[in-house]
Design a protein around this nucleic acid. Structure first.
Length: 594
RNA sequence: GGUUCCGUAGCUCAGUUGGAUAGAGCAACAGCCUUCUAAGCUGUGGGUCAUUGGUUCGAAUCCAAUCGGGAUCACCA
């Protein structure tokens, strides 16, 4: 089935070519907009692009094309050219036809662009501290983008690379050895990732104290930082870990297992899941062979001290180290190795990395090196770069204790959702467990929407006061519209049936809602093409807004006729279906009543 | 300093491959519940689209310069 706007494009192209055979106008040359409310019409064709080549003034051209369309097609009833814009009115029968044909799955499939094999990597936690606000944006983006790409016809997997080794992990291990006295998450009643995070903080406190003491003894700060016993012990532990020393390995496994238990709970609460998890402890040695290979191919070169480099100055970048003097590999080398590994395992057309924009340079380099090495799938590497989340007071800084913890934030949002629901007196008819579910739906939904509604590429400000607002441009607003529709359809005994909807003249709110609904497949395709969930947020909010206007002005209970009643029920039903569909892609639940 | 991203209403953000009088939400103000859920609706005020120049029928959008801000340029990850 063809959407009305798409049909208009092809009809208009045909009209151009019939009237001006030399023009050779293609469908994609034609720009169709929704007609602005102050003008008569539903859709608008922009004439300016053709004015010059056809040597006609806009008014004459609009008149000619408009006449041709109205005379040759039943579905255009009226045209009017205003300053180079050809406004066309669509006849009600066409809208009725669209409504009867409405099938979300079919129309989306018809619009599906690609069918690639895609892997989305996101979340990338460290096992020395709990997830924070920045991780939330990352996770929400990862899930939403994966969902959207899958809906657009691709085969999509989700993966997570856990940073479970390294000096920072050893820090919390050392601190636990020193100060833990055998405490566990169970013994202290603390969530595992928070428990381990506390020892990471304890490490830093102890380290700071040791450094201060050494400086008081007359050492320079630099010396003190190097010689502090706790730091030395940490470095020794890393060496022991790499050597596989049993007691270190056991402590490492135990503490990581605490963290994973904590992460699982967080992921469950925010709806994140993965098809495959990579652990850096397994992948950090990958890529070593590739250095040799690169040397042989002449992609890399060796300096006198033995370190290995790649020269990217011809590509406008710098020289980049890929293997240290001592023969150990660096971060980027592991990433190249992992890219190869992923490719072997999944044979991807596209490998997406959801990673903050502070790593733009890193991923440019990664892709370039992979391409130069001729690694399969290198061209499909795509860094989905997103901006940092900042607070109104500025950046989050762990040193200043301004990092917003993910679990705390989720809990607070749910609590506030409950508080506001009760304050609004909307708890009647719910069981205790239903209420709990509703609060989660509202609280978590609000948080997700708040973080997803901004263009991923842009940095954003997280204003706690604003984020808990459940009015206006929020998930709650959309959820509320959905709940209203559900209760409305139940109350007015909506029975879907096959009768032809005879629309006697559509009212403005009805038509506006229709036009809005018709945009959905295009918006979804755009969101997939741009890897941009915020396009869905903006659209869905606009749709809900449009519905609310319609809801105020077009009564179903007191509809003028049975046809009108059914028409409005169908419009409401379709609105709810689109809301459910799009919110589901965003990872946001919608309640049937609230 | 090199590279790169950004600058739109008091605040947070939209603004399609350049198109009509630059739009939402929040905040402020004024209305609307004996009628389908008021977490809603309607209305008012609020703009040098950082600045200057250029490209053209037409610029928030493209180009250049300037000002202001962020990120990055580790034998860290």
């Amino acid at each position: 089935m063809k959407l009305i706007a798409a049909q208009l494009k092809s009809d208009a192209a045909a009209a151009f070519n019939a009237l001006y055979p030399d023009a050779n106008v293609k469908e994609e040359d034609i720009l169709v907009n929704e007609t602005k409310p102050e003008f008569k019409g539903d859709y608008t064709i922009v004439l300016f692009p053709f004015v010059k080549s056809l040597r006609l003034n806009p008014a004459a051209l609009g008149e000619a094309i408009g006449n041709h369309l109205v005379q040759n097609h039943d579905n255009y009833t009226h045209h009017e050219t205003v300053a180079g814009f050809l406004n066309l009115s669509i006849n009600d029968a066409s809208w009725a036809h669209y409504l009867n044909q409405f099938n979300l799955d079919l129309s989306l499939k018809a619009n599906a662009g690609t069918s690639k094999k895609i892997m989305v990597e996101y979340s990338s936690p460290n096992t020395n501290k709990p997830l924070h606000l920045g991780h939330l944006r990352n996770n929400f983006l990862g899930v939403a983008v994966a969902n959207i790409l899958a809906e657009a016809g691709n085969q999509v997997g989700k993966t997570c690379v856990v940073n479970d080794r390294g000096v920072h992990i050893c820090k919390s291990m050392i601190a636990w050895q020193k100060f833990g006295n055998g405490a566990t998450p169970e013994s202290t009643g603390t969530k595992g990732d928070h428990f381990v995070g506390e020892y990471y903080v304890k490490f830093n406190d102890a380290y700071k104290a040791e450094v201060a003491a050494l400086v008081a003894d007359g050492k320079t700060t630099e010396q003190a930082e190097q010689e502090a016993p706790i730091m030395k012990a940490t470095q020794q532990m890393l060496v022991d870990w790499e050597a596989g020393k049993p007691e270190v390995m056991e402590l490492w496994r135990t503490m990581n297992s605490w963290v994973y238990k904590g992460f699982d709970a967080t992921y469950k609460a925010i709806g994140s899941s993965f098809d495959k998890t990579y652990y850096e402890s397994n992948t950090y040695l990958l890529g070593k062979d590739l250095v040799e290979e690169g040397l042989q191919k002449g992609v890399f070169y060796q300096k006198e001290d033995g370190s290995v480099w790649i020269d990217l100055t011809a590509d406008g970048l710098d020289e980049k180290l890929v293997r240290r003097r001592d023969g150990t590999s660096v971060y980027i080398t592991q990433d190249i190795g992992l890219a190869v590994e992923k490719q072997k395992e999944f044979n991807l057309d596209e490998s997406i990395y959801v990673v903050g924009d502070e790593q733009n340079y890193h991923f440019k380099v990664l892709k370039l090196i992979c391409q130069k090495l001729g690694i399969p799938g290198a061209d499909g590497i795509f860094h989905l770069s997103y901006g940092m989340v900042e607070l109104p007071s500025g950046k989050m800084k762990s040193r200043e204790g301004t990092v917003v913890d993910a679990d705390d934030l989720v809990a607070e949002m749910i609590r506030l959702a409950g508080e506001q629901t009760e304050a609004a007196g909307k708890t009647e008819g719910f069981s205790e467990s239903e209420l709990q579910e509703l609060y989660e739906t509202i609280g978590v939904g609000a948080l997700k929407f708040y973080l997803l509604r901004v263009d991923p590429k842009k940095k954003m400000i997280f204003d706690p006061k604003e984020s808990i607002d459940l009015h206006g441009f929020t998930a709650t607003f959309i959820q509320y519209a959905h709940a209203r529709i559900c209760s409305l359809l139940a109350r007015t005994e909506y029975v879907k049936n096959e009768i032809v909807i005879h629309t006697d003249h559509l009212l403005e709110p009805e038509k506006q809602l229709l036009i809005q609904q018709e945009q959905y497949p295009g918006i979804l395709a755009q969101a997939a093409m741009e890897y941009n969930p915020s396009a869905l947020c903006n659209y869905t909010f606009k749709l809900a807004q449009q519905f609310n206007t319609f809801f105020e002005q077009c009564s179903i209970v007191r509809a003028e006729s049975e046809e009108k009643k059914l028409l409005r029920q169908v419009l409401a039903d379709h609105t709810a279906k689109i809301i459910r569909h799009s919110m589901n892609l965003l990872g946001i639940k919608v309640p049937n009543k609230m």
